[in-house]
């Protein structure tokens, strides 16, 4: 199998398999989570605070007062990483072509050089966050194997994408195949690792906000 064959495999069979596992996993977990159910809350809601769930979705997305100063690395690197990754995935022309092909939805792209810079910023942020995880005793204690796995799964597509774009390490065709395969690995494991927060983050934020609201802890 040569590089182009590998790329053909990545764009064909492997992509289909990865999307199938990803879609299966996401639906499975969503049904599982929603199907868990809750016991009926028989107590009356505390001073009702309608919209608490929605407000929490927003409030938890921005740092609480004073926290950026207390833990600048986590917050700043966290934001840089997430925003960089978001733009890299959604505003790079070749990625938009893929989305357009699958969903028939498309939008304008950003200049490739700008996306490239943001991808680099994301990679640096990921490295900083890993170093911080190692050096901060509390974070280190809280870290499990799953966290490292999620870190590797996220770094690989960024790194291989960067190397492919700049024609580094291996020839472009092979690197592009590796890039697509690394994304497929990410897709397949996404529903079964903490990366599932891509889907669940706002659902859980809404739920936490709503239940706390009922109990009188309005956000």
């Amino acid at each position: 199998m040569n590089s182009l064959d590998l790329l053909t495999f990545a764009r064909g069979t492997a992509l289909n398999a990865a999307l199938a596992v990803c879609a299966f996993g996401i639906l499975l977990r969503l049904f599982e989570i929603f199907g868990l159910g809750r016991k009926a809350d028989l107590s009356p809601a505390r001073p009702t605070t309608p919209g608490s769930g929605w407000r929490t979705m927003y409030a938890r997305s921005i740092p609480p007062p004073g926290m950026v100063r207390r833990d600048p690395v986590t917050y700043i690197a966290g934001y840089v990483f997430h925003i960089g990754l978001f733009i890299t995935i959604l505003l790079f022309a070749p990625h938009i072509e893929l989305i357009r092909e699958v969903t028939s939805l498309g939008w304008p792209s950003l200049p490739s050089a700008l996306v490239d810079a943001l991808a680099v910023a994301s990679i640096i942020a990921l490295l900083v966050l890993l170093a911080h995880r190692f050096s901060n005793p509390v974070k280190r204690l809280l870290t499990t194997g799953g966290d490292y796995l999620a870190w590797v799964l996220t770094l690989l597509p960024l790194l291989t994408g960067y190397l492919a774009y700049h024609h580094l390490l291996f020839e472009y065709t092979f690197m592009l195949a590796l890039h697509i395969l690394s994304v497929e690995l990410l897709l397949m494991l996404l529903p079964f690792t903490k990366l599932f927060h891509v889907v669940s983050v706002f659902i859980s934020r809404w739920y936490n906000g709503d239940i706390s609201g009922r109990k009188g802890v309005a956000s």
């Binding site: 999307l19 879609a23 299966f24 996401i26 639906l27 499975l28 049904f31 599982e32």
Partner: peptide
């Protein structure tokens, strides 16, 4: 795959 996932989710639930 999504349909199969949903069905499996219902079964698990």
């Amino acid at each position: 795959a999504a349909a199969a996932g949903a069905a499996a989710g219902v079964a698990v639930t």
